[in-house]
Amino acid sequence: MDLLFIADPLESFKIEKDSTLAMMRVAQEVGHHLWFCQSRNVLWKDNLVVADCQSLLIKPSSTSWFELGDVQSKALNTFSAVQMRTDPPFDIEYLNTTWLLSAATRQGAKVFNDPAAVRDHSEKLSITEFPDLIPPTLVTRELSAVEAFHKTYGDIVIKPLDGMGGMGVFRVGPDGLNLASIVETLGENGSRTLMVQRFLPEIADGDKRVLLIGGEVVPYALARIPQGTEIRGNLAAGGKGVAMPLSTNEQRIAEKLAPILNQRGLFLVGLDLIGGYLTEINVTSPTCFVEITNQSHFDVPHFWLKALERTIS
């Protein structure tokens, strides 16, 4: 198979734990051919969606770990599969790329995740489709609504809808200290929508990342546990990642969502669960392949590749 990865610059990869690199390695090991480009290299030309891409060889060295070939212009529908692995934020250029990728799917390209499904799926707002699984939640631009929510629940978390890696997440305790200032700053004085949720003390046990691949559930989660005085478990915010088997409740939630999301074209999904509550559904560039594999010995990259091969066969 010829696999195209649309990703961030290779030089930016954290090679000791990068999930995209783990995908590349396992695909190369079984004989598939790798290609690479950035989203800026996807274009409409001569009535086709093409990528100005390069062949990619993964090498064992930890310093010079990749080798790229000459740039070639190849139609996306000539690849066996196209992996869109560009990290958020989901800005206008990300949106433009999804529109080009949608055009490519109309021309027969197999893109994962499906660009229309990604475009229609807000990683934070999507949880509202499953109200029985989520904590008390408010979505608003109005300070008065946040103040009323705080009065009801006393201890809350406020976050922007387009954040990633725990960026912009604030906790406001029962004293309400700086509530108005936080809402005004994050919400840019009412011009941006915020999500507010009841604080879940179970975060002390970890923000669990559960992976869904091809409609199936990876049986281990990565609990991202806050360190020190932090409330954020995100690894980017200094959280400690600990792989552990799914609890009965986590398995139930994952098995409920897996077939629904896969049917929509969301082949790879990362659920975030805190204390048995669903808090996010990540579809742009889910991670934690390496951490789960290294600690549980469940081979997530191999699981991903087998699911991909079945899907495109």
Results as ranks from 00 to 15, higher is better:
L3T: 13
I6E: 14
P9V: 14
E11H: 15
E11C: 13
F13W: 10
K17Y: 01
T20P: 05
T20I: 04
M23H: 15
R25Y: 11
A27L: 12
Q28E: 08
Q28R: 08
L34G: 11
L34F: 07
F36Q: 02
Q38L: 11
L43P: 01
W44C: 04
K45T: 07
D46K: 13
D52E: 12
I58E: 04
K59F: 11
P60Y: 13
S61E: 08
F66S: 10
G69S: 00
D70C: 15
V71Y: 08
Q72T: 08
S73V: 15
K74C: 05
A75W: 03
L76D: 09
L76T: 00
N77L: 01
T78R: 11
A81W: 05
Q83A: 01
Q83N: 11
R85S: 04
E93R: 13
Y94I: 08
L95T: 07
N96S: 12
L100T: 11
L101G: 04
S102L: 10
T105G: 09
T105R: 10
A109T: 12
A109H: 06
V111S: 00
F112H: 06
A117V: 03
R119A: 13
R119K: 12
E129D: 13
F130W: 11
P135Y: 11
P136S: 10
T140I: 06
R141A: 02
L143Q: 10
V146Y: 15
G154C: 04
G154D: 00
V157R: 04
P160S: 05
M164E: 09
M164Y: 14
M164D: 02
G166N: 14
G168N: 13
V172G: 14
G173V: 03
P174Q: 07
P174I: 10
D175I: 06
G176W: 01
I182M: 14
G190N: 06
M195W: 03
V196M: 12
V196F: 09
V196R: 03
F199C: 07
I203V: 13
D207V: 01
K208S: 09
R209M: 07
R209V: 07
R209S: 03
V210E: 13
L212V: 06
G215Q: 04
E216D: 11
V217R: 09
V218Y: 06
P219V: 09
Y220D: 02
Y220C: 02
A221T: 08
I225Q: 07
T229P: 03
R232Y: 01
G241I: 02
A243I: 15
P245W: 10
S247P: 04
T248M: 11
N249G: 02
E250G: 04
Q251V: 06
I253F: 04
E255P: 14
K256Y: 14
P259V: 00
L261S: 06
N262K: 12
N262A: 15
N262W: 14
V269F: 12
V269C: 05
G276W: 08
E280L: 05
I281N: 07
V283H: 14
S285P: 11
S285E: 09
S285W: 13
P286E: 00
F289Q: 04
T293I: 07
S296L: 08
H297D: 05
F298C: 00
V300T: 03
V300L: 04
P301H: 07
P301D: 05
F303I: 03
L305A: 01
L305I: 12
A307F: 01
A307P: 08
L308N: 04
T311I: 09
T311W: 15
S313W: 07
